[in-house]
Design a protein around this nucleic acid. Structure first.
Lengths: 248, 248
DNA sequence: CGGCGTTCGTGAACAGTGTTCTCTCGATGG
DNA sequence: CCATCGAGAGAACACTGTTCACGAACGCCG
């Protein structure tokens, strides 16, 4: 967003991200960053208001790096293969997290900057769930329907309506009315995805789930089934009505 | 586990837990604790090997406090009402987390002690998921069956078998052979529960889910449905889907 | 060319942290 | 009554983030 990033600032942030990957968010030291850049600590205050600003910037760019890796993987899947797009999104998210555990922890672990996400990080933060939503909407356009009928409570329904109204301005391609249940099922999947990755990286699966990739794919297929997202070509999934959707 | 806890040690830990609730895990200061106890910092090293030991002990007791609140709430529900037991476990877990956000963050946020759970904390950490498992097993004994048939991959199947073999020694009352799918569905629910709470407390629901309690109950009912846990007496609750399961 | 002003980086300082070490009390046991 | 030993004090070390005064180098403009 800055007109032209000063080379010093980019050098600082590059070093900061490297050190973040080694020591983790809590141990990230402004003085250590300054040392590696080859400058005295106070010099950094020409470019940054403080340590928190470094973390905030790492959070913002972290969301974008994650979203970049995920959308790149998802974009490589044929558009009509909604189940593979869905599962690929899950798999790519986990693979990025496993490859960058400290960066993931900075994004989805305990908040470090004032226990409130800075406003400049909310935009990039939504891109993964938007990818999930796009797949779900595309599948719905292609004829997918959530198999189970469930009723949403009034407050949850209001949330779903509010989110639905927000979707177009977030860049979601919508050509069909969106069921509020669809919104809540996508949020369900989003929650499950990051819940499972956090459990894996934070050690809670240590004595139970060891086949992490396969397990996450199991969860992905379950949430896909709830959305009515079935395998391409019809009857591979467990779905009852064998109506295969048309595709380009 | 200590024979008799020295009064000084308990005083330190009490103060530490209080300060944890105010400033959070990252800002928990050994010197501040010593100040409030009325002693010089180095005096604490008579009783503790260092700051990490305080955090480890707070983690251990935190798991027990959470499990205590949850099992107390769950124990107040009639044994045969499996759905209410299940939903109550979810609700009580969230309510404890919301009431003690910093303590929750210490347990389920970014690991602070060496990125590996100390072995003395794994016991208490399993009690919530064991409660969920007990409800699921009781429901299965009463006739509940998971509606959807899904195939588990070989590695996930091996995990499920290993966990199943571990259950009896963890104190789970099992009188019936346990389906490996049941194991993985309980882990699914466990993951969803803490994923949703972490998302709420860590700010990721900020612009989407505002009806937190109702939303968590929606997730609880979805995971219960996957386990075949239905409302007592059939058609009670908002579930009007016909075919009630038989129950003792 | 000469001075000016702005920018950038330095270095010292302050308050705070976790941890280690030495020392001195004071109570307790023989 | 004296010796022992543990509890706590206090100083010190190596860090941390942050602030501030200073000085040197640079481009700009008359």
């Amino acid at each position: 967003m800055t007109a032209a990033a000063p080379p010093m600032l980019t050098a600082v942030l590059d070093v900061a991200r490297r050190q973040l990957g080694e020591v983790g968010p809590a141990a990230l030291s402004l003085r250590a960053i300054a040392r590696e850049v080859g400058v005295v600590p106070s010099a950094l205050y020409r470019y940054l208001p403080g340590r928190e600003a470094i973390l905030t910037e790492l959070i913002r760019s972290g969301y974008e790096r994650l979203a970049g890796a995920v959308t790149e993987a998802e974009a490589a899947v044929p558009r009509a293969d909604h189940l593979t797009r869905w599962r690929t999104t899950w798999r790519a998210t986990r693979e990025w997290a496993v490859a960058h555990p400290h960066e993931y922890a900075l994004l989805y672990g305990t908040p470090v900057v004032g226990y409130r996400a800075p406003t400049e990080t909310v935009g990039p933060a939504t891109r993964v769930v938007l990818t999930l939503a796009q797949v779900a909407v595309d599948a719905q356009i292609a004829g997918a329907r959530a198999p189970a009928s469930e009723e949403l409570g009034p407050e949850v329904m209001a949330d779903a309506e509010a989110v639905r109204a927000l979707l177009p301005e977030l860049g979601l391609a919508v050509e069909v009315p969106i069921d509020p249940r669809l919104v809540m099922l996508v949020i369900d999947g989003w929650t499950t995805l990051f819940g499972a990755i956090s459990f894996e990286l934070f050690g809670h699966y240590e004595r139970s789930v060891t086949a992490r990739a396969e397990h996450l794919d199991l969860l992905a297929r379950r949430r896909a089934a709830a959305l009515g997202i079935v395998a391409l070509g019809g009857a591979t999934g467990r779905d009852h009505d064998g109506e295969a959707q048309s595709q380009a």
